[in-house]
């Protein structure tokens, strides 16, 4: 056979400077994060103490689970707007179970997980099987699950729960509370799953090009279903942790959390079109938001101004990321 094209050229050599600037550009969010940390540490003596850093992690934990679920959904090119309400419905279901089923810590946990799974599965089924746009499907679930949360409590919070209901949030393992441990484990597990397993690759593939993935043998409906179901379960767990912290089921719990979760994913570099994003990116985005919340509290910035500043920082952070991506791809 005749050789028409020359052999593959060896890997192009790049100079050190380019590698260094490439690294900075690729990890621009880490740089932004470090700058923000440095700013708060400089302005507030209390910021960089172990106690305060633990506080940041504790505050981040309930967001972490829903942001991770949201990452998978967004990677497929979808969105899950219902997670905040699903947290509330799951928390209420768990609280109701705890109130009526006595002092068994397993039953409320089961109630929360099943509620989350059910809501997520309904989302997944409607999106994958009936091909209703995810935005609409989960917007409907947002309203529905919130309604269910109020129905369970007859419009009021459920309090006076057995002490064991507080164990989910307050048990300590190696000096960290259970939600923080769960957050760390979930990040590690999902980072591995998305990077190193068939499932992870398939999620990326259908987000990148659903038809091409199907032709290559990916059952895209099953994968789509699964990401919403996972998002639902994680929202259920997250709702339980949040309710457990105050040993009360509140029907308005988790309200608006979906927006912070989506913000974390997007700050982490994911594309809302699907196919691009990482679990580590989401973890950084999550910590970034919580660090800002915490730092602004320490600096005694009034709550309403905090929102203004946070809004600016979210858009600015993503703006920097888009700029860096454009530089990096050149």
């Amino acid at each position: 056979m005749n050789t028409i094209i020359e052999a593959v050229p060896a890997l192009q050599r790049r100079d050190l400077k380019e590698i260094a600037s490439g690294f900075l550009i690729r990890h621009i969010m880490v740089v932004v994060m470090l700058l923000i940390v440095a700013f708060f540490a400089y302005r507030s003596a209390r910021f960089a103490t172990p106690d305060n850093l633990t506080n940041i992690l504790i505050a981040a934990a309930p967001f972490a689970l829903i942001a991770l679920g949201q990452t998978l959904v967004i990677l497929t090119g979808g969105i899950d707007l219902s997670v905040g309400s699903v947290m509330a419905a799951s928390a209420m279901a768990a609280a109701w179970t705890a109130k009526n089923a006595g002092d068994n810590p397993m039953l409320p946990l089961l109630a929360a997980v099943v509620t989350g799974l059910l809501a997520g599965s309904i989302n997944g089924l409607i999106v994958s099987k009936f091909e209703v746009p995810p935005f609409i499907t989960t917007l409907g679930m947002l309203t529905l699950a919130s309604g269910i949360a109020y129905v369970i409590g007859n419009g009021a919070p459920i309090s006076g729960l057995p002490a064991s209901f507080g164990s989910y949030a307050n048990t300590q393992i190696l000096g960290l509370t259970l939600p923080v441990v769960l957050m760390i484990v979930a990040i590690l597990v999902l980072a591995f799953v998305m990077k190193r397993t068939n499932y992870g690759l398939r999620v990326y593939a259908i987000g990148g090009n659903r038809l091409a993935a199907e032709i290559a043998g990916v059952r895209s409906r099953n994968i789509l279903f699964s990401v919403y179901a996972i998002s639902g379960v994680l929202a259920g767990l997250s709702g339980l942790m949040l309710a457990s912290r105050v040993i009360t089921g509140a029907p308005n719990l988790g309200q608006g959390y979906e927006l912070d979760a989506i913000a974390a994913v997007v700050i982490g570099g994911a594309s809302l079109m699907g196919g691009r994003g990482t679990v580590w990116g989401t973890a950084i985005g999550l910590l970034l938001i919580q660090t800002i919340n915490n730092g602004l509290d320490l600096l005694l910035v009034p709550a309403y101004w905090q929102n203004v500043i946070k809004g600016v920082i979210i858009v600015a952070a993503v703006g920097v990321d888009v700029w860096a991506a454009r530089r990096g791809s050149r």
């Binding site: 690759l201 593939a205 990148g208 043998g217 990916v218």
Partner: peptide, 20 residues
Amino acid sequence: GAGAVLSLSVLDNATLPRIA
């Protein structure tokens, strides 16, 4: 549109059909 997932690497694209 149907052949390749452009956002994935050569390695991952080539993995998909023979993933098992």
